[in-house]
Structures are given as C-alpha cells and as structure tokens.
Design a protein around this nucleic acid. Sequence first.
DNA 1: GATGAATGAGCCTTCATTCAT
DNA 2: AATGAATGAAGGCTCATTCAT
Lengths: 221, 221, 221, 221
Amino acid sequence: MKSFNQSRKSKITPQHPRSAARSGVRPKRRRDRAAKQQALLAAAIKLFACRGYEATTTREIAACAGCAEGLIHRYFTGKEGLLLAIIQDRVAREVVDLNAHVPLAQSFSLEFLQLLEWELQRMWEDRDFLRVIIPRALLDPEVGKVLSRVGTSRHADAIVERLKHFKECRSLTLDELHGLARFIGLLGFGFGFLRPVALGQDRARARVMARHVAEIFLRGV
Amino acid sequence: MKSFNQSRKSKITPQHPRSAARSGVRPKRRRDRAAKQQALLAAAIKLFACRGYEATTTREIAACAGCAEGLIHRYFTGKEGLLLAIIQDRVAREVVDLNAHVPLAQSFSLEFLQLLEWELQRMWEDRDFLRVIIPRALLDPEVGKVLSRVGTSRHADAIVERLKHFKECRSLTLDELHGLARFIGLLGFGFGFLRPVALGQDRARARVMARHVAEIFLRGV
Amino acid sequence: MKSFNQSRKSKITPQHPRSAARSGVRPKRRRDRAAKQQALLAAAIKLFACRGYEATTTREIAACAGCAEGLIHRYFTGKEGLLLAIIQDRVAREVVDLNAHVPLAQSFSLEFLQLLEWELQRMWEDRDFLRVIIPRALLDPEVGKVLSRVGTSRHADAIVERLKHFKECRSLTLDELHGLARFIGLLGFGFGFLRPVALGQDRARARVMARHVAEIFLRGV
Amino acid sequence: MKSFNQSRKSKITPQHPRSAARSGVRPKRRRDRAAKQQALLAAAIKLFACRGYEATTTREIAACAGCAEGLIHRYFTGKEGLLLAIIQDRVAREVVDLNAHVPLAQSFSLEFLQLLEWELQRMWEDRDFLRVIIPRALLDPEVGKVLSRVGTSRHADAIVERLKHFKECRSLTLDELHGLARFIGLLGFGFGFLRPVALGQDRARARVMARHVAEIFLRGV
DNA sequence: GATGAATGAGCCTTCATTCAT
DNA sequence: AATGAATGAAGGCTCATTCAT
C-alpha cells in the first residue's frame, strides 16, 4: 500500500530533452525516449479527460501515443504511475507568472475583475487536467493536497500581494485577504471550468455570470 | 504501483439484516423490496463516493447492502442503472424546505450569513452525492444537466424570494438578485464542499474563510 | 450422477385428465394440474426446438406456458427433468399404428414408396421433437438408445412384417430385411427431417429427391 | 437432477505444452500463435462434441488447449467465433481427395461398395465435427447451408465423375447419377455416423447393415 | 531497449433453483 | 398448492501487466 508521493522505483525524472543535449552521448536515443514519454503523457491526459481514468485502456493510450503498450510500464510503472506522472509533470511545469503577464490595474475593482478574467482563462486552459484530477482528488486526499497546492494556492499568494497595493485592502487582515484571493479562484473555477465543462453551460454566458457576481460583490449592498 | 486510495480494496463487512449477524445463521431471507432497494442505493452511494463508480464492484455493493448481487440487476437493471437510480432518487427527494427550517432573519446581513450557513451545511451533507455525480458530470453531459438543475439552481428561487423581503434588495433587479443567490451558492459549494472534501482543508477553516468573504461583501469593499 | 431413467423423486406419472375423473374428489384441481403440466411440456418442446435446450430459460418456458416458474421444479424437478418428461411423454404416447392407417400395397415397389411416404410424413410431424432430442442424443448415449427404440426401431418390425408379404423379399435374410427397413427409415429421416429442417431445403424438393433415390434403388442397376 | 452426460462436469486435465508437466514448473510461455490456435480449435471441437457447445466453458477449452482463456477472445473474438472458426477451418481444409486415395475399381459393383466404404469411414472420422455442427444447424439456418455444402454435396460431384466410367451408368441421366451419389452419401451418413454415434449401435453392425442394403440394390430387388 | 503476444484475475451479468408468502 | 422474489454460483469477456523475442 503505497502513498501518493513515494514512487519507489519510479524513474519519472522528467528527462528534459535539453538535459540530454549536455552530454554528446546518443542524444538521438534520449530525445526519442523523452518524446515518447511526452507523447504518452499527452495521450493519457487527453483520453483520461474525455473517457475517464478507469474507462481508458492502456492499449488506447499506447495507440494514441503511437508507441508500444509495454512502455507505459517501463517508463511509468503502469497505468496509475502514468496518472501520477501527469500530475507531477503539471506541478513541475513552470507556472506562468501572473505578474509578468498582467500589470497591476488602476483600482481595486479593476484589479479584481482583471484577476477574475485571468482565472477564468487559466481554468479553461487547464480544463483537461482538471477533468482528470478532480475525480481523483475526490477519492484520494493526497491528490487533493497536490491540487490544492498547484491549483488553488498557486496564485493565492501572488494575488494577495497584488491586492495589498490597494487602499481598500489596508484594513483587511491577512486571513481576509486570503479569503478574498480564494474567492477569486473559486469564481474562476466555478464559472471558468465547472459550468462550461461539467454543466454544459455556454462559456460566454458563464463568463458574464461571473462578472455579474463579481460586480455585485464589488458594489456591496 | 498500488492504489491512491488506501482503502480501495478493503473488504466490506457484509451488513446482514439486523443483528442476525451471529455466525452460522443464514439470514432467513425476507421479502422487503423497498428496504432492499434503499439498502442498495445507500451502499452504492457510499461506495461510489469513496472508491469511485468504476472501481466499485457490484459484489461489494451487494455485500455492503446485505443482499444478493442479482438484485442489483433485477431492481436497477445493472450497475449503471443503480447510478441513475441514485441520481433520480436524489432529484425526486423533496428538497428539504429551506423556509420550513430557517425563519427569516431580522436583517439582510443576518439573513445573508444565515443562508450561507445553510448552504455550507447542505453541501457538506450532500458531499457523498456530489462526490459521485461530479466525476460523472465531467464525462456525461446528460448528467451535467441534472447536476445543474439539482446542485446549482436548487434553492436559487427560494433564496431570491427570501431576499426580496429586505429593503436593501428593493433596488436590485431580478437578475441581480439571482446573481446574489448564485454568490451564496458558490460560497457554499466552494467552502462547504470543494475545500473540505476535495482539497482536504479543515472544514472549520473553510467555513471561516467563507464568512470572511461574506463579511467583506456585507461591509462593502 | 444419475442415469437417464432412474428419476428418483420424479412424480412425472403422466396424470391423464380422465384418471382424475375417476374419483369425484376435486376433479377441477387435478385437471388444472394436468393442464399446466401439458402446457409446460408444450411450451418447453416448442422453445427447446427453436432456441435450443440451453438457450431457453425456465422463465421463458413458464411465461410461454402461462404459469409460475416454480412449477417447473415442482412438477418436473427442474429444467432437465422437463426434458426427460418430454421424452417420456413421447414414449408413452400411443404410437400411431401404421397398419391401421396404411393398407398393404399391391406390389413391393408400391409398398416401398408408400412406406417412404409415411416415414417422410412422420418425420416432418415429429420435427420439433427431433430437433430437441437429436442434439441430446449426440451427447448422451442413454438418450440415443431411447431415440433408437422410439424413433428408429419403432416401425422397423412392422415394416419387416409387411415386406415379408412380397415375393421379392422371400430370398432375403431377416437381417437384410431389417437393413431394408432401416434404409426406409433413413430416407425418411434424411429427406423428411434433416434436409428441410437442418439444411433449409425446400420440403417438396426434398420429397422428390427421396423418391428419386428410392426409384433408383428399386430399379436396380 | 443431475446431468445426462455423466462426464459433463469432469475436470479437464490441463494439457500443458509438451512434457513440461513436472509440478511447480511454470510452462515458460512461448510465442507460437499458429500452434495455439490449432490447439484451441482441437480442444474446442473435442469439448463441444462431447459436452455440447453451450455446456462447454471457455475456461475448459483454454485448460484443455493448455493456454490462457484470453486467447480465445484474441484469436477468435469469443466463444462463438471459435465455433465459426471450427466450421471455416473444416470448410477450408482441402477435402482429402477421394481420387488420390482410392483407385477406380474394376467393376461398378466393386466401385459402389468401395465408395460406400469410403463414406462410412469419412463420416466416422468426421463424427466430432458432425456432433458439433448438426445441433447448430438445427438452430441456425446459416450453419445449415454450410453443412449442406460441406457435409452433403461434398463428394457428390467426384462420385458422379467416377461412376461415369462404368457402362452400367451410361444410360443414366445426370440427375439419376446424382441420385445415386446421394444414395451412397445417405448410407454413409446413416450407418457411418447416425447409428453408431447417435443411436449407440455397434459400428460393425451398422456397417453390415449398410452393406446389406447396398447388396440388395446391386443384386436388384 | 522496445515490442506486443500471452496471461489470468476479476468484472458484470445471467438464470436455475429455493423458499417466504 | 401456487407464486415469483431472492439467491448465488458460474459464465463470457476485458484489460493491466508480464516477458519472450
């Protein structure tokens, strides 16, 4: 009975192509290997997202990735290892820096709406990953923690830092600020992912709804 | 590579009817269709919630319900039918009447907080159902529609009606009132279900966060 | 492991309605019982013939006979007992007397053709029974013996007796006469049953073929 | 109520590859697709013949063939596919050439008896196949057609060609020649297969009967 | 190292049989 | 006595995993 993170024999060491380039020895081979691993990860996330983890067969994944079924076990020690690798791959991937892309807005309200927009966008872009990981998070607390770190608290601190710049937030405790940041994330999750993806709502409509709720919140009673 | 969920394969102790669990005594089969159906539904939702739909076997469900496997097929025409029955059962069940249980508060603020509390509570109580249905909704658009009706717009109208009683809401359009209801519902879902259940956050802490956000809103930003 | 005939607990005693009429006690009840038994036998032979023994469910038989599934077990001690009962029922049934229906022909040739015609007819009429029993006979030697007694040697002796009347047969040994009788039966079986039923050949055509072969045989080389 | 066929449920001793039957030694799985396919076909025809198609389990077939159950589905797409494969295999197999094995006899009479002998022999050799296919033909018209082609008209043409060499047949029409061939085939089927296999008659006795009929025919009635 | 053929445990489902009503 | 609801053993089949090539 192994826990989520202690992947005993896993050789998942992401094996980035460029690290192979360092040594002149057989770079082709290593590039192939890394390419196949990526192909498997991509195939797996795509199939897990649209069929579900259990309903996807390793045969399908291998076929979709264009390589042999046995590689799933060699590289990732099985189907479940592939799922772990998907998560770790996402965790390892450089999180796109909010601050580098979105300059601070002029006012608290604008900033709030801007952050919401950013979240809506991110959630939509991550939808395949979320479709895979949410069902797992509902089953396995360990996965939930990872999701929490990666998916939810990801920008939380960054958002808190940004909000601190506004006078409206001066009077808020740190706890309240975190609550606020989480709320923005929640709006993003609910209207950027859940409604369009799970509930089949039109995405544009969901976005309007999100702004609607945000505006009510900002205007106050 | 073992399972994520450490209890995935744990034996379910057969829940034999009543206290006739004394060893050696065959449980004297009874004819109680309604009771068996309920037992199966209860066992199924419990197991689906903690192991996932696919990973739960009909054998386990029957054992947990204390009846024969064949009944799943007789009553619900199979495992999938059992899932549908769980959903329909929930849909059909008279939604516990908000108004009958929670008297209107004295002020808008108190009412708002009270409704939030109610939602947090409801989401927590429904957590098993949500754990089952959310993963399905991510795979099957049809299920998504049901979840939309049941899970999201459930109390929306009732909440709107209640809010109308307060002078603070007089100036709001119906759309805005619905936005307000959605706001409460989202807080309930996010902090009453998602955070404690999926992300493993302490429930009390999640509740505090929800109140923080509500208070900021009520106080005005 | 029980043999074919020792039906230990079977109460298959054909229970003819008229034997019930003898005693004035509850004749209705007994008629019902006998009627249900006959209905079950009829339903079973029909379904066994068109779906096969294994592919027919006791549920179907009961439904087709218009009575409860449990009766199959009460009356015939199960599905297999029903099959035995079908066979015994057929064995017990008074064999239609060849001599009473078909007067001796004027010549050997006419007699031969007349007997062939009779066999073709009998086989066709018995086709449902044959469809049931032949597959069983191929599996179980005991059934084969019954079939042999009932189906093949049935008229053999009668036929031999009739053939003895013709001068053409004077020179034949008893063994040869039996061979001849079996040959007539074989023609009947092949062209009266197997070809139309198993090989899907047009019945009229099969009959013509049979006569053709018979004529060649009679004409000699 | 036990089964008709006393050996119905007897365990089939797993026929592990070669003499590696020494206990404890895992049979060192080999890749020999063609051999495994043949082993499965052989096991299936044997078991189908003695237990019947429905009563034979895929588990038994695999055990008897000394390979894994899954292969039945991989190679033949299931139990039914295995049955079809048995039929196709038989159809495809080059019919042992009558002419290559049996030289034309000196006279018509000798040729007739020789052909009869050949048919009796062939039917006996094909008995397992016939035991499998006849019950199927009684259920499925499609199978009937195959049986018709393979089992009945198989040598008809070859026989007709051979008979043409004899002066006794000069005066016969083609139709009559085919009648003659059918006569021989029917004797072969009836006395070479049906009587010994289905009716449990001694094989030698059945053969004598067949010769009696043939001799009567040859001698002229 | 890569491949995919072979394995076999375990799944959902069917259905003859039992037995409470 | 008759019913049909409940039982549970056993079936065909799938598919993650192993391992000969």
